[in-house]
C-alpha cells in the first residue's frame, strides 16, 4: 500500500500542543493520522501502521487516544481501563520501546472487528541489556458513533517476556 503524509495532518508549525501533552512535533506519520482525532479506520493495514507508529512515538498519552475511555488493555498483564490504563501507557512507552507487528487475520462484522497480530517489542532492561518481548495479540475494534474505529479490547499473549496474562 502506498502511503503519503495525510493532508489532514496539521503542518508541524501549526500544531497546537495540548496543555497536558509535551509537544510531539518529532513524531511524524506515514499514514493518514490526525493526533487530535485518531481513527484506526476499517483498513487492516492502516490500522496496523497507525498502531505501530503511535506506539513507537513513545507518547503514552497519544497512544491512549487510540482507545475509548472504557476500553480494556491487557498490555500490562492485567485488564486496565481509564486513568490506570493511561498511566501504564505513559510509563511503558516513556523508554521508547519499538514495536513490530504483522497482521495474521482480520474479520469485520458491522461495527466491530477482530484482528490478530504477531508482535515483537524491543526495549532496554534495567541494566541496559536489550529485552525482546514476542507473542500474539487479539484486538477488538469498535466503530464509534462519529464513524471512527478505535481499540475496544486488546489481549496480548506472550511467547516470551512479560506482556502477557498467561
Amino acid at each position: 500500500m502506498t502511503t503519503e503524509a495525510s493532508p489532514t495532518h496539521p503542518p508541524e508549525g501549526n500544531r497546537i500542543p495540548m496543555s497536558a501533552t509535551p509537544a510531539t512535533s518529532a513524531t511524524s506519520f506515514t499514514v493518514p493520522f490526525d493526533p487530535e482525532r485518531p481513527d484506526l479506520t476499517a483498513d487492516t493495514d492502516i490500522q496496523n501502521e497507525i498502531f505501530i507508529q503511535v506506539f513507537n512515538s513513545g507518547d503514552g498519552e497519544l497512544f491512549n487516544r487510540l482507545y475509548l475511555d472504557d476500553s480494556i488493555s491487557n498490555f500490562s498483564g492485567e485488564p486496565l481501563t481509564g486513568a490506570a490504563r493511561l498511566a501504564f501507557f505513559k510509563e511503558f512507552l516513556a523508554s521508547k520501546p519499538t514495536l513490530e507487528a504483522r497482521v495474521t487475520h482480520s474479520y469485520v462484522a458491522g461495527d466491530v472487528a477482530l484482528i490478530g497480530v504477531e508482535y515483537a517489542i524491543d526495549s532496554t532492561g534495567p541494566d541496559g541489556e536489550p529485552v525482546r518481548l514476542e507473542g500474539v495479540c487479539t484486538d477488538v475494534l469498535r466503530k464509534t458513533e462519529d464513524g471512527r474505529w478505535l481499540m475496544a479490547i486488546d489481549r496480548p499473549v506472550a511467547a516470551t517476556g512479560l506482556v502477557a496474562d498467561q
Binding site: 476500553s71 480494556i72 481501563t81 466491530v112 487479539t138 469498535r142 475496544a152 479490547i153 489481549r155 496474562d165
Partner: peptide, 12 residues
C-alpha cells in the same frame, strides 16, 4: 477469560 466494556465483549 471474559472482557466486557460497554457494548463489546471478548471471550476466550
Amino acid at each position: 477469560q471474559v472482557f466486557v466494556t460497554g457494548e463489546t465483549a471478548l471471550m476466550i
